[in-house]
Write a protein that binds this DNA or RNA. Structure first.
Lengths: 134, 134
DNA sequence: GCGAACTTAAACACTTTTCGTTAACTTTCC
DNA sequence: GGAAAGTTAACGAAAAGTGTTTAAGTTCGC
């Protein structure tokens, strides 16, 4: 039974980074090149991203598909689309307009450019009105 | 840039399981043995566990070490230890006694046997009174 | 422009994970 | 007891991930 996703090396680098050390300083401490510290840090961040995405998937397992927001939609129209669709199936959304936009931008920043949705976004909802973007 | 931790196969099995299918039924659908479905499901759960642990580690990066609960401590004494230590450094813990015990059991079940702590548990705390076990 | 910090790409050896098989085992429910 | 559901162990081949190096590329403050 192994631990988390991160290797000892990756956690080591992240801890030193948290302390404010530069990649070169860390490279000296752990006796390797700064390029290597960079790749280790990068793969650590990648692993963290994957961990988050994995749990997001778990949530969508409990949720049902609410609607799909098409590419090109104005970001500020997304909440009203969600409210309308949720009302159709008689579920009250847990979030207000602002929170929805924030949640969307946080979890799907790569699907938003400025004020536009630049990639179809699948919206999931649970019976409790929790919203997830997939 | 890959997706989450789970493979397509693993997500497929989890979805079918969520629908209530048995391992045998899934095995028939995806054309393999039920033993294989079992191992795929098991490794999916293991990956989910690792994803959670990875994010837990992230939180401990933001947190400072509060105290270490030694092996053999009674489980129901843990909260008062935490409250006392947090008070020393003037941080109000976000949780009550019951929630703390629940959180502990959920995140570190392998460190608890019945009413006893069976492995040293490191306790972390953030400035906001958030508690993590490491 | 200079230097320090950081990023990237290609290649390599190495380890771990994954999916699959077969066969035996435990659990659960009637 | 018996059937269905689930688990486990041992093994193999293919795929994916890790830590390194070297060398060339940013980016940013001064």
């Amino acid at each position: 039974m192994k631990d988390g996703l991160l290797t000892d090396r990756q956690m080591e680098v992240l801890r030193y980074r948290k302390q404010g050390l530069t990649q070169q300083q860390i490279a000296d401490i752990i006796a390797t090149s700064k390029a290597n510290v960079c790749t280790i840090e990068k793969s650590a961040m990648e692993n963290i991203r994957r961990a988050k995405e994995t749990l997001e998937f778990l949530y969508t397992l409990d949720a049902t598909h609410l609607c799909t927001v098409p590419t090109g939609t104005d970001l500020f129209e997304v909440p009203s689309i969600i409210f309308r669709e949720a009302e159709k199936i008689n579920i009250k959304v847990k979030y207000d307009t602002i929170s929805l936009i924030n949640r969307l931008r946080e979890s799907k920043s790569q699907s938003c450019k400025a004020r536009q949705v630049c990639e179809d976004i699948i919206v999931y909802i649970t019976d409790q009105g929790e919203i997830y973007f997939g």
